[in-house]
């Protein structure tokens, strides 16, 4: 097996947040010791609720934000310092897609001009070659040159997201970070964009980091899925298997909270308590105040992410091998 394209080791990011004008600053551990590897041509899905740190992880992986500690290596090399020529060259190989395509596009420019912009910035080819490339990109996302002449306001939500995708692909990147790319779209349009993304990935050999709160969409597109809770990965495993046999109590609750047509709510695990607040993370396992199975040890000791099977790692005292040994 070849070396992974993206290697993230133990990255952490803390923000300070002030409550009110004179309040004392509190440290918010948005991301805390997250390690990931993404193999070439594969998709890693990152799921979690708001405040779980999944978007911050995506921004750090892309180099939009430096980690406080830890390191991100892209294609075997550490990320170059922001603003340098090496950094620009590296950034052309990695792109990002956001949730709100209207916010990511300039309303006053025809969309074809916006697709061309990265080519102009990175000085790719001659002007006529760039025009050809724009037409090729529009075709790749199943739109016509006529769509290219329009302004973002004259396109539907699905078409706008295709334009954003075309622009991200303009510099022929190897790696795409997609942050909730289909969450704002209607179900039927969502399926179109998910299929398109899967096709483009297969054609171009793209590597993806796919961030979403939607378990179904994440499973559909990912090879490996990581579940985050309050800045840490609590479970990671193969996409086929993870939601079918979740091990961590939080993953189990998430899967059970995901409504399924044809299943009545009788068997649902309903977690008590409020959504987690990253500014006041509980001691020990961050999930223990809401966990239906928590024991005394969960309140004092942070569980480490440990392998429980060849393709599964779980951070839970009740699941990991260590706990079973202790209990025996």
């Amino acid at each position: 097996m070849s070396a992974p394209l993206v290697e993230v080791s133990a990255i952490s990011r803390t923000y300070s947040m002030r409550s009110g004008m004179f309040g004392r600053a509190a440290a918010v551990h948005a991301v805390d010791g997250v390690s990931l590897t993404i193999a070439r041509g594969q998709t890693l899905g990152l799921v979690g609720e708001s405040g779980s740190g999944k978007s911050t992880t995506g921004r750090i992986v892309l180099g939009l934000e430096p980690p406080d500690s830890g390191e991100v290596r892209f294609d075997g090399k550490p990320m170059a310092a922001p603003g340098t020529a090496a950094w620009r060259a590296q950034r052309a190989r990695m792109q990002m897609i956001f949730q709100d395509p209207l916010g990511a596009l300039d309303r006053r420019l025809p969309v074809a001009t916006q697709i061309r912009e990265p080519l102009d910035i990175h000085g790719v080819g001659t002007p006529s070659m760039r025009e050809d490339r724009v037409r090729e990109l529009l075709r790749a996302v199943e739109l016509t040159p006529a769509h290219g002449a329009r302004y973002p306001g004259a396109l539907s939500g699905g078409q706008r997201q295709r334009i954003v995708l075309a622009r991200a692909l303009a510099t022929k990147p190897d790696f795409l970070v997609c942050d909730e790319p289909v969450s704002a779209l209607d179900v039927s349009i969502q399926a179109q964009v998910v299929n398109l993304l899967a096709d483009l990935q297969a054609q171009l050999g793209l590597t993806l980091l796919f961030i979403s709160h939607d378990l179904r969409v994440v499973r559909q597109i990912s090879n490996v899925v990581a579940v985050m809770y309050l800045g840490r990965i609590v479970e990671i495993g193969s996409a086929d298997d993870l939601f079918a046999r979740p091990e961590h109590p939080y993953t189990q609750a998430l899967v059970s909270a995901s409504p399924a047509p044809g299943r009545r709510s009788a068997s649902r695990i309903v977690l008590s308590g409020d959504p987690p607040n990253p500014a006041a993370r509980p001691q020990g396992c961050a999930f223990h105040p809401r966990c239906p199975r928590a024991i005394a040890r969960c309140a004092s000791e942070v569980p480490a992410l440990e392998a429980v099977a060849s393709d599964r790692q779980v951070a839970c005292h009740l699941v990991s091998g260590a706990a079973t040994r202790d209990a025996a």
Partner: peptide
Amino acid sequence: QGLIGALPPLDGPRRRLTAIPGTV
């Protein structure tokens, strides 16, 4: 049928989503 086909399954084998072409 299209709406239900467009919903990715949470378990079982993964299949290509049957997207409804076009827009509203």
